[in-house]
Design a protein around this nucleic acid. Structure first.
Length: 327
DNA sequence: AACTTTGTCAACCGCTACTGG
DNA sequence: GCCAGTAGCGGTTGACAAAGT
């Protein structure tokens, strides 16, 4: 654990003293509380000042990162939906490793999350195939094999759920150009009543306070259920089915940020996470994605998140061998 | 059961761009 | 124009958990 690791010894006395006061490593419950409370009152920005005034022994940089990637209420957790994966594939093919730019088109997803996803899922597949993730061979595999299957996955789910009926503009631009057979998908925007609820800081604070009172809990998704008393039975059961919180995965018992995030799981489930994740996308500007300039960059494997694996490694190897290049 | 390997992802680092004095 | 402070980006690290042996 990288807690309270101090900086190098080649520093001036004053900077050493400064560093000695600075904490590093994983954030504690108390630090999260301080940060969230401060931002609730004063808003974000001026991070160095914020860190000092909030009483945090952290750099402004660290505070900013913690807020943007973890504590900010609209940060979305859980597996990326096939639609999101498709969008990432497409945008990465256009922009490369411009994670922040890509993240702008996936509301609730952070650049860090997308970057991690790419490195752990996509590049892994390239490694397994022993192909350079940036090679044209790998691009072809993605374009010809993986993306159509991902699209099939999306198409299949659209018949049984509302996922595709609430397709985002961004995704609806991607789908037809990669898979004409799916171009008839409804692309209607969500009706107004399904728009994502505006963030209510008071709810978040309530959740935090509640969590503080019940910090013995080690559960994840149900820890903030009290804030969602109006949930019906089906909503509750869906909640328990939702992929585990990364906070649970971290094993941070008593970390109240779990609670913060749980609140948003709950809220999100009010709107049907699967359907609304992309439905509520507000895509700034026109992606300008055309069939003509569509050329894949690094690939997405797409199947990794699904129990019924979409990708068949044998088939991919066939693909690779047919390509006969770039080992 | 014990140990090793692999995968995940939060957090850090270094750099560049921007802004205001 | 120069400088310092700040914000933001992309690459990398390392702790931890899960999977494999």
């Amino acid at each position: 654990m990288r807690v309270n690791i101090m900086s190098s010894s080649k520093k001036t006395t004053s900077s050493r003293e400064d560093d000695a006061e600075l904490r590093r490593g994983p954030w504690t419950l108390e630090e999260d509380t301080l940060l969230v409370h401060y931002i609730a009152r004063h808003g974000e920005g001026r991070w160095n000042l914020l860190a000092k005034r909030a009483g945090l022994r952290r750099t402004g940089k660290s505070c900013r990162l913690r807020w943007l990637n973890y504590l900010k209420p609209d940060v979305k957790r859980g597996n990326l939906t096939p639609q999101e994966q498709l969008l990432i594939l497409d945008l990465h093919s256009k922009w490369g490793n411009r994670w922040s730019k890509i993240a702008q088109h996936l509301p609730g997803r952070t650049d860090n999350e997308i970057k991690n996803y790419w490195r752990t899922r996509v590049q892994k597949q390239a490694r397994h195939l022993r192909i350079d993730a940036n090679s044209t061979a790998f691009q072809d595999i993605i374009r010809r094999s993986w993306m159509p299957r991902l699209l099939q996955k999306i198409g299949g789910s659209s018949t049984s759920s509302s996922a595709m009926t609430c397709q985002s503009p961004a995704v609806s631009q991607v789908i037809p150009s990669y898979a004409p057979q799916f171009s008839a998908f409804p692309t209607a925007l969500p009706p107004p009543q399904q728009q994502e609820a505006p963030f209510d800081m008071s709810v978040m604070m309530h959740c935090m306070e509640h969590r503080e009172q019940t910090s013995d809990s080690e559960h994840g998704t149900s820890s903030c259920i009290s804030s969602a008393e109006s949930m019906n039975v089906s909503q509750m059961s869906r909640l328990s089915e939702y992929p585990k919180s990364p906070f649970q995965a971290m094993g941070n018992n008593g970390d109240y940020s779990t609670l913060v995030k749980d609140c948003y799981y709950v809220d999100s489930n009010f709107y049907d996470m699967e359907a609304i994740n992309l439905a509520t996308m507000s895509v700034p500007g026109d992606l300008g994605i055309s069939a003509a300039d569509r050329h894949m960059g690094d690939g997405d494997w797409a199947g990794y998140d699904f129990g019924d694996t979409v990708w068949n490694m044998d088939e991919l190897w066939q693909f690779r061998n047919l390509q006969g290049k770039e080992i």
